[in-house]
Simulated scan of single mutants.
Amino acid sequence: MADAARRIMTPEEFFAWQRDQDELYELIDGHPVPRHRMMTGASLQHDQATVNIIISLGTQLKGTPCRPTTADVAIRTSIMDLRRPDVMVECAALVPDTYEAREPKLVVEVASPSTTAVDRARKLEEYKRHPTLAYILLVETLKPQALLYARQGDAWAIATFEGVDAIIDLPAIGARLALAEVYEGLTFAPRRNVATGA
Rank of each mutant, 00 (worst) to 15 (best):
A4T: 13
A4G: 07
A5L: 09
A5W: 06
R7A: 12
R7G: 07
P11H: 02
E13F: 04
E13T: 08
E13R: 08
E13M: 06
F14M: 05
F15T: 01
A16M: 04
W17P: 03
Q18C: 03
L24N: 12
E26V: 02
E26G: 02
L27Y: 03
I28C: 11
D29P: 00
H31N: 10
P32Q: 08
V33P: 05
R37C: 04
R37H: 13
G41Q: 02
A42D: 11
S43L: 09
Q45N: 15
D47P: 00
D47M: 13
N52C: 03
N52L: 04
I53C: 09
I53M: 12
I53G: 14
I55K: 14
L57W: 09
T59N: 14
K62T: 05
P65D: 07
T69W: 06
T70S: 15
A71R: 04
D72T: 08
V73C: 01
V73D: 00
A74E: 00
A74C: 05
A74P: 00
I79L: 12
I79C: 01
D81W: 00
D81N: 15
L82I: 02
R83W: 02
V87L: 04
V95F: 00
P96I: 00
P96N: 06
D97Y: 13
T98M: 12
E103A: 07
P104D: 05
K105G: 11
K105L: 09
L106A: 10
V107L: 07
V108A: 06
V110M: 05
S112D: 09
S112K: 14
S114C: 10
T116F: 14
A117Q: 15
D119F: 01
D119M: 04
R120F: 07
A121V: 03
R122I: 00
K123V: 01
L124Q: 04
L124H: 03
Y127K: 01
K128H: 06
R129F: 00
R129Q: 11
H130Y: 06
T132N: 12
L138A: 14
L138W: 12
L142P: 04
L142T: 13
P144M: 09
Q145G: 05
Q152R: 14
G153D: 10
G153M: 06
D154E: 15
D154P: 01
W156D: 03
A157C: 07
A157G: 07
A159F: 03
A159D: 13
T160I: 13
F161I: 02
E162G: 08
D165M: 13
A166G: 08
A166M: 03
I167V: 15
I168L: 08
D169H: 10
P171W: 02
A172G: 09
A178L: 01
L179W: 15
E181D: 15
V182Y: 10
L186A: 08
T187A: 13
A189H: 01
A189D: 11
A189K: 13
P190F: 06
R191W: 02
R192S: 10
R192E: 11
A198W: 04
